[in-house]
Structures are given as C-alpha cells and as structure tokens.
Design a protein around this nucleic acid. Structure first.
Lengths: 117, 117
DNA sequence: CTGAATCGTTTCGGCTGCGTATCATTTAAG
DNA sequence: CTTAAATGATACGCAGCCGAAACGATTCAG
C-alpha cells in the first residue's frame, strides 16, 4: 500500500524539514552532501566513489570532496577495499547513524503535527 | 487528523526527494535558498528581508544574496514597500510557482511509489 | 528640525565547492 | 613483462556563499 500524501502536505512537510535544518546550529549540509549521506545509509553496500558519482549523476571529485568534509564531521568514513585496492569503500559511523536517526525523528514529528489539508 | 509517517518512510522519502533534485540538471538550490523560497510561497505575506532572516535564524545579507541569485532565476522578485520605503517586499513569480508545483508533484509521486514499511 | 533607530545593501577577506584535466596506484589484457 | 584500463585523489582557476562591519536611505522620537 502506498503512502498517501497530498500536494499541500508534501510542500509543507518539505518546507518545515528544510527550515528545521537551517534554523538549528549545526553546519548545513549541501543537498549533494545530504544525498550522499542518505544513500550510504539507506541503500545496500558496498558504496564506492564511482558508484555514488553515478548514482547522483555528478563528477567523481564531488564525491571525494564531500567525503572529505563529511568525514571531518565523522558522519562517514573511508576504507580501502582489500579485494581490489583501487576501490574505496564508504562506511557508516556511529555519529552518522545518530545524525540520520535524529533527522528521521524530526521529519516524523513534523509530519505528525501537520493537519490533513 | 495527523499525517502518518514512520521513520523508515520519512528517511526514504527525504533521500529520494533530495536525490531527485541533485540528479536533475537544474542548478541546485542551497538548503537556505530552498527554505526562503518555500517560506515565501507557503507562509502568509508580507515577507521582508528582516522577517525572513529572523524566520531562518540567519544574518540579513544571507537573505539579500539569496534573493539576488534566485531573482536571477526568476523564482521570486522584490518590490519596495510604498508605505514604508525602508522595507522590501518579496513577491512570488510565475516561474517560482511552477517550480514549487513541480517540486510538490515530485514528492507526492515519490511517496506514492513508496511501500508501507 | 535634529539625532537616533530601522531596514536593506554593499564591502571585505576568507572559505568551500565546482568542473576539467591530470596524477599515482592497482588491476586486467595481450 | 608490457601496456592499457579503471579507480580515487589532486591541482588549478573560478563561482558562490559566508559573517562582520560599514553604509545610504528612510522613518521615528523629542
């Protein structure tokens, strides 16, 4: 069964979630960084630089740089693939999992407070 | 009645919507720009620079610059308040309304395709 | 009328991200 | 072995955004 969501609800939820992330004091992730992070946490591993670049339709250095900056926040980490040492495997971290969890709770809460329109 | 949405649904929807915006070829808006745009279109006017800065918990020049760049895309426009010429009123545009409408349709569609988890 | 307050803009130096091209390392092919 | 291909990282110049401070225009207070 599909998740029911009308146009006004979708927009309002999207706005409130964005607003929430902007208003808090954590550094804002760019839309690209957010997409990378969520893809790593929600889609099946393994995740490589090249794979993420293809998934996001974006150049490889974009991924490398995003991993650098989000790595600094400990939101995810890198490891060489021992099977094929050309590859880098992107891995989840405890901090990243917590971040994602908080984000999910926030969205659920915003949706819960929303009236059917 | 509240909109029901569980944690996994919230995350998946958020990821897919972000991914969609990143993958398409339009220039990405920053999270701040997105918040400004949606606030202008979803919350009651009038919208001023100062008001938006307070709403987003952000410095005034952030708003001025975002209005400059989104104005270049014709996503919104500015007008002097004739009642109090210190104020600038931020106004909606046809292009902006279409952009918002497409965004909403996208989110609704992504939600519709999503299974209950 | 004059000085203070308000509002949006601009300036400044600095930081981050971008795309293209190139690089070093590793693996695969002949 | 030698060469080509694949992968991620780096160099480069350039765009855009940042926060803090200063500015001009307008309105308000006394």
């Amino acid at each position: 069964m599909a998740l029911e969501l009308n146009t006004a609800q979708a927009l309002t939820l999207w706005q409130k979630a964005n607003l929430h992330l902007v208003r808090d004091d954590d550094p804002d992730l760019s839309m690209r960084q957010m997409s990378i992070l969520l893809t790593v946490y929600l889609e099946a591993p393994p995740h490589t630089v090249r794979g993420l670049a293809a998934r996001l339709n974006v150049a490889k250095p974009v991924i490398t740089r995003a991993l650098d900056s989000m790595g600094r926040y400990n939101l995810l980490s890198r490891r060489r693939d021992e099977k094929d040492k050309r590859n880098v495997l992107i891995q989840r971290t405890v901090e990243g999992a917590l971040f994602i969890e908080r984000l999910a709770d926030t969205i659920v809460e915003l949706a819960r407070k929303q009236e059917h329109i």
